[in-house]
C-alpha cells in the first residue's frame, strides 16, 4: 500500500482502500440492525401474546388512536425515507450541497413526525389514557385496555427515541456535508445513516397497522 493511499480523505488507517472500508462498515451496520430487529421483535412479541389473549379489549383500545394522525405520520416518514435515499444518491455523486439539502428536508420531516406524535401523546394524557393509577378509558373496566396503552407507549416511545437519535445524527452529517467531506469515492457515512433511517421507517410500517388499524372494521 502506497503512502498517499493511506492519506486518502476519509480512509481509516486499518483499511486497504475505500471500497474495503465501505464493505466493512455496511456489514457492521447490518449486524447492528440485526440486533435492533431482535430488540423491537421483543416488543412485537409481547404485543402478539397480549393481543391474542385479549382481542376485544385491544380492538376497543385502538379506537382511542387517531387514524388520520397515524396515517399522516406514515406518509411523512415514508416521504422522509425518499429524501434520505436521494441524499445518499447525491453523496455517491459527491454533491455535498445537494446532500446537505436532502438531509435538511429529511431532518425537518422527522421533526414533523415527532411534533404530530407529541400532539397525540398530549391528547392521550388529556383523555387519561396514560397507564397508571389515573388511567380512565371512558368507563372501560377491562384492565387489558390499559395493557394496550402500556405497549402503545413502549413501542411508539422507543420508535420516537430512535427518531430523536436519527435527528441528532442528521445534524452531524449536515455539518460534515457543509465542510465538503464527501466525494464520489467517499460517501459511506451517508449510506450508513440512510440504513439507520430506513430501518426506523420499517418499524413504523409495522406499528401503524398493528396499533392504529386493528379495530377499524368493527
Amino acid at each position: 500500500m502506497s503512502d498517499h493511499a493511506a492519506h486518502a480523505p476519509g480512509l481509516a488507517h486499518q483499511f486497504d482502500d475505500l471500497d474495503q472500508q465501505l464493505d466493512a462498515t455496511t456489514l457492521g451496520m447490518w449486524l447492528f440492525l440485526a440486533q435492533e430487529i431482535m430488540f423491537f421483535g421483543g416488543l412485537f412479541a409481547a404485543y402478539a401474546i397480549y393481543r391474542s389473549h385479549y382481542p376485544e379489549a385491544f380492538a376497543a383500545a385502538s379506537h382511542h388512536l387517531d387514524i388520520r394522525l397515524g396515517g399522516f405520520n406514515t406518509v411523512v416518514l415514508i416521504f422522509s425515507s425518499l429524501t434520505m435515499a436521494l441524499g445518499v444518491r447525491a453523496a455517491q455523486m459527491g454533491k455535498n450541497k445537494t446532500v446537505f439539502n436532502y438531509l435538511l428536508v429529511t431532518f425537518m420531516l422527522g421533526n414533523l413526525f415527532l411534533v404530530v406524535k407529541a400532539f397525540e401523546y398530549h391528547h392521550k394524557y388529556v383523555e387519561g389514557l396514560i397507564p397508571g393509577p389515573w388511567f380512565s378509558a371512558h368507563g372501560a373496566t377491562d384492565p387489558a385496555v390499559q395493557m394496550f396503552f402500556c405497549l402503545y407507549f413502549a413501542m411508539t416511545g422507543m420508535h420516537a427515541l430512535h427518531m430523536v437519535v436519527g435527528g441528532g445524527l442528521l445534524i452531524y452529517f449536515m455539518v460534515q456535508a457543509r465542510r465538503e467531506r464527501y466525494h464520489a469515492h467517499y460517501f459511506g457515512p451517508i449510506e450508513i445513516m440512510g440504513l439507520y433511517w430506513h430501518f426506523v421507517d420499517i418499524v413504523w410500517i409495522f406499528l401503524f397497522p398493528l396499533l392504529y388499524l386493528l379495530g377499524l372494521h368493527q
Partner: peptide, 20 residues
C-alpha cells in the same frame, strides 16, 4: 449489496422468525 451483507440481513430476519 455483497453476498455477505445479504446473508446478514437474512440472518437478522431468520432469528426474529425463530423467536416468534
Amino acid at each position: 449489496a455483497r453476498p455477505m451483507t445479504r446473508l446478514t440481513v437474512a440472518a437478522g430476519i431468520l432469528w426474529l422468525v425463530i423467536m416468534l
